[in-house]
Design a protein around this nucleic acid. Structure first.
Lengths: 206, 206
DNA sequence: CTGTGTGAAGGCTTTCACAGCC
DNA sequence: GGCTGTGAAAGCCTTCACACAG
């Protein structure tokens, strides 16, 4: 399965399909056509079929896809078969909100610990996720084999903290800090930049 | 200025350049080459020049770009010349966090009001942003000429609330609800989907 | 006859190469 | 000489058209 030739956007859409399938399963729909699933995901049927084709043949011609089987296959491909532990670094406004956000667990992720310069932030007091100072970072990551981190620190320290994460062995960062992070090959960064999304919208409304 | 022919990704990068320019201005750098600015934004110099070329000629050959002038030009193009008012709908964990997030104001946006089914959520009590029930939505949008909304409601009511926003005259939605929104032409939606970003990272780390 | 899987065509974005101006 | 602006080329992704399986 030649991973490197698969368009990044296709992988992104896989998650979309996956979520739509879960809803179908809840409604006890047993099979679904590419047309129906594509509509739910907001893409064209041919694109959905092409995306799935990167990973194998999952459908039955003349019938469609079995929701249960396809869903499992996607779980497998996306690497969310088991609950993936994630740490969060930077417990400010945004960080503490994400600690309380329960949308992660539903899709296979668990925030298992939080880190901050100030380990006694009252904001985190009402959570049942342990909060540590930055000194504990490397030890924790090693001990618990953590691969993924959510970075919610101010922009000015983003790169510095990212360096610490990389040095500690983190392989993937979901970055909310408004900076372009430089990381070595092999470390993956996805950026979520709220101000830029708003600015982008602003442009398109005349 | 033929807007419709400009790649969406180019507009997105414009915001990136804009932010880098602001940092340069703070450091009192007066001119910058496409190579230097591109490096800061994490793109190739030719791409930066191509992106800027969609909107005009801002540089001086042999010299580079004047930071101040280019920054102003981008502000103009992006439509963030004046502070843009934004409302937020859905004051749960994520919503209330975003109300407390001060990263918006820095880049030209002000969250002027919040709306929720339950207008007396204690979460919003410590904010100085007014919180209203959904009944007030349309009147508020009309009265204050609001064009943009941040949608932080649960996925299952996302489409329904989006419909209300569109009916009330909203032209652009920053959507955090994990659903694919269907909106009429002329209404712009940008999606921020945290679970999908994590799933995407999960795929790329083996 | 229905609906998937896929090579080929088409369209869009990025990169190149270099002309043009300071 | 240095660096921008830009037509042309390359690369990538999406869409089409249809072969093929049930």
């Amino acid at each position: 399965m030649p991973r490197l030739e698969i368009p990044r956007k296709a992988v992104y859409r896989l998650s979309l399909y996956h979520r739509c399938l879960q809803r179908l399963k809840e409604n006890e729909v047993e099979t679904v056509s590419s047309a129906a699933l594509a509509k739910a995901a907001g893409v064209k049927p041919t694109q959905l079929r092409k995306d799935l084709a990167y990973f194998g043949q999952f459908g039955t011609r003349g019938l469609g896809y079995e929701t249960e089987a396809l869903s499992e296959k996607l779980t497998d491909v996306l690497g969310t078969t088991r609950l993936q532990p994630v740490i969060l670094v930077g417990v400010g406004h945004l960080g503490s909100a994400l600690l309380g956000y329960n949308g992660f667990a539903r899709e296979g992720f668990e925030v298992v610990a939080a880190f901050d310069l100030v380990a006694n932030r009252e904001r985190a007091a009402n959570q049942n996720i342990p909060l540590y100072g930055m000194a504990k970072l490397k030890t924790y990551i090693d001990t618990h084999s953590i691969k993924m981190a959510i970075l919610t620190v101010p922009g000015r320290v983003g790169q510095e903290v990212a360096n610490q994460l990389v040095a500690a062995g983190i392989q993937a960062i979901l970055n909310f800090a408004p900076v372009v992070l430089e990381v070595p090959d092999g470390v993956m960064v996805n950026n979520v930049d709220l101000a830029i999304e708003l600015e982008n919208l602003s442009y398109f409304i005349r």
